[in-house]
Amino acid sequence: MIIWIFFIVIWYSSLFSQTFFQHRYAAHGAFSMSKGWERFFFIVTYITQGSSYMSPKTYGIMHRLHHAHTDTELDPHSPAYSSNVFSMMWRTRTFYLDIYNKKMKVDARFSKNLPEWETMDRIGNSRLSRILWVVAYTAFFYFFATNPWQYVLLPIIITMGAFHGAIINWFAHKYGYTNFKLKNTSMNLLFADVLMLGESYHNNHHKHPSSANFGYRWFEIDPTYPLIKLLVKMKIIRMSKPAVEAAQHKQEW
């Protein structure tokens, strides 16, 4: 039971950091925050993502490239240019490392207004940090696992960020339904997205990428959006654009 609770906590907390901080804030600027709160969410992202930590700046650049070059050879993660989900994620990893290590030339329009904290990124992306997180996860399983089958969850926890990315970047470009006719293969993977905190409304997001609310139709509940509205009321973040309806937002990337 403890292992399953641990898995669920890691699943949703790491996913929240990805969709709230790296995706909606860093990549699309759906809302703004002070430098102090930005540093706070940097730390939260590092703690929740652990061994699969991604630099918000690098993630933002890579995701903007995805929107600008969806389903083309320049797309960092497209099923159209990978034979399976594993090769696609390896391709994504290559893009990520090339951007992070400044081995890839990136147009200035993709790298403007991104959150930066070099020290935290250096720690989170270091081999030592990733190894220590893996050791910590493994130790937790050693002390609390009650069945050998529970160790099946350990590789997922270690690669949680990549696991989440694979679900959306592969399956949401191959299966699902669409609300908008676009010049790409993006689809909405789930009708009620309680598993991916709104991320699976991929067709909606490609139509209105700067919207803070990924849901569009009445049944498309985005669990992250009420939390965003709460943070606005608490004056922790400020909406960059009206986000009551996704249709009010213009496509930027």
Rank of each mutant, 00 (worst) to 15 (best):
A192C: 11
P226I: 04
W37I: 02
Q248V: 07
F180W: 07
Q49G: 00
A166Y: 09
A26I: 05
F110H: 02
L15C: 08
L74E: 06
G198L: 14
T48V: 02
Q251L: 14
F7M: 01
L190I: 07
N147P: 04
P223L: 01
V152M: 11
P209V: 07
G124D: 03
I99A: 00
G161H: 05
R217Q: 05
L114Q: 01
M1N: 13
F219C: 00
L154D: 05
T185I: 12
E116K: 10
T224M: 11
N147A: 04
N113Y: 05
S200C: 14
G161W: 00
I221K: 13
T224G: 07
F21C: 01
Q248E: 09
Y151S: 04
W4V: 09
I8A: 12
V134C: 13
H28K: 02
A212G: 11
T178I: 10
V232A: 12
T70L: 11
F42Y: 08
H28S: 00
Y100V: 08
W90R: 15
R122P: 08
K183Q: 15
T72M: 09
I8H: 02
S83G: 02
L153H: 03
Y177R: 07
F21K: 01
K233I: 07
I131C: 14
I10H: 12
K229D: 02
R122A: 14
M54N: 12
Y96W: 13
I237F: 00
F144H: 09
V232D: 12
A108D: 15
A136S: 06
L230Y: 12
I168V: 08
Y151P: 04
G165Q: 01
V44F: 13
I10S: 08
Y216G: 11
H164C: 00
N147S: 10
Y59G: 13
T58A: 05
F143N: 13
F42A: 03
F42T: 06
R130L: 09
A246C: 12
F214Q: 14
H63G: 13
A162M: 11
M1C: 15
K233V: 10
N169V: 02
S240M: 03
Y225C: 03
F21A: 00
W4H: 10
I2C: 06
R238C: 07
E220A: 01
K181H: 11
W90Q: 12
W133D: 00
Q22Y: 13
S32A: 15
F214D: 13
M239F: 08
I8P: 02
L154P: 02
S55N: 02
V44D: 10
I10N: 09
R93A: 15
R64K: 05
F171G: 03
L153V: 01
E252N: 10
Y59E: 11
R91Q: 11
G60E: 00
I221P: 06
M187S: 04
S87L: 15
L197T: 10
L15R: 07
V85F: 09
K35H: 05
W149F: 06
Y225I: 04
R238P: 04
D107A: 08
I236Q: 04
A166R: 10
L197G: 08
N147F: 04
F6A: 02
R24A: 03
H249V: 15
H208M: 06
T178M: 12
E252C: 09
F21P: 02
L153T: 01
R217T: 06
L230D: 05
W170C: 04
N188C: 11
F86N: 05
K35T: 01
Q49C: 03
H77C: 11
S129R: 13
L195E: 02
T159E: 10
